[in-house]
Structure formats: C-alpha cells, structure tokens
Amino acid sequence: MANKALAKRQKMTIRVEPSQKALKPRNPIALAAKQRVAGSHQKSVSAQRQMEKRALKKAVNEPEDK
C-alpha cells in the first residue's frame, strides 16, 4: 500500500479521468440558470399584504379636495 502522507515538497495532484472530461465546453449561462431558484412570477403573500397596507395609508393621508 502506498504512503498516503505527502512529503514536505510533494504537491498533491488531482487526476482527471477521461470520463470526467466533457466532450464539448459547458454552457455557463445554462449552468447559472440551473443553479438559481426558479419560481412563480407573482409577489409573495407578505409582499402583497405590505403593498396593500402602504396603499391604504396613502389613501387615508391624501386630501380629498382634488
């Protein structure tokens, strides 16, 4: 069995097996799209509630003589 400890000047190298090499370069845009969280295109319930609360305060504080 080989000695698993590295000597002082010995560098650890990582071998890439042929199966790990991609035949063509990966698309960085597709990778970014896959990693981000995708969801529905609507506001959350709390965001809607806060928006309605702000609209109500604005309507109460607006003068009626326009």
Rank of each mutant, 00 (worst) to 15 (best):
R15E: 14
A5S: 11
K21V: 05
Q35F: 07
K24R: 10
V45M: 15
V37D: 03
L56G: 01
V16H: 11
E62L: 09
A5Y: 15
A55E: 05
A7G: 09
Q42N: 13
N27M: 05
A22G: 08
A22H: 10
K21R: 14
L6N: 09
A38Y: 10
V37G: 04
R26Q: 11
R49W: 01
K21A: 11
Q48A: 05
R54I: 02
R9G: 14
Q50S: 02
S40P: 02
L23C: 00
N61P: 00
K58D: 00
R54N: 08
K21G: 03
K34W: 13
A5I: 15
E17Q: 09
A5C: 13
K43Q: 01
V45T: 12
A5E: 09
E62S: 09
S19F: 15
R9M: 07
M12D: 01
E52M: 10
H41D: 04
L56D: 03
M12H: 03
A38L: 13
R54H: 13
K24N: 09
M12R: 04
V16W: 14
E62R: 11
A5Q: 13
Q48T: 12
Q35G: 04
T13M: 13
L31G: 06
S40F: 02
K34I: 07
R36W: 08
V60S: 00
A7T: 04
A47P: 02
K24T: 14
A32M: 05
G39A: 06
A32C: 02
K58Q: 00
A59L: 07
P28C: 02
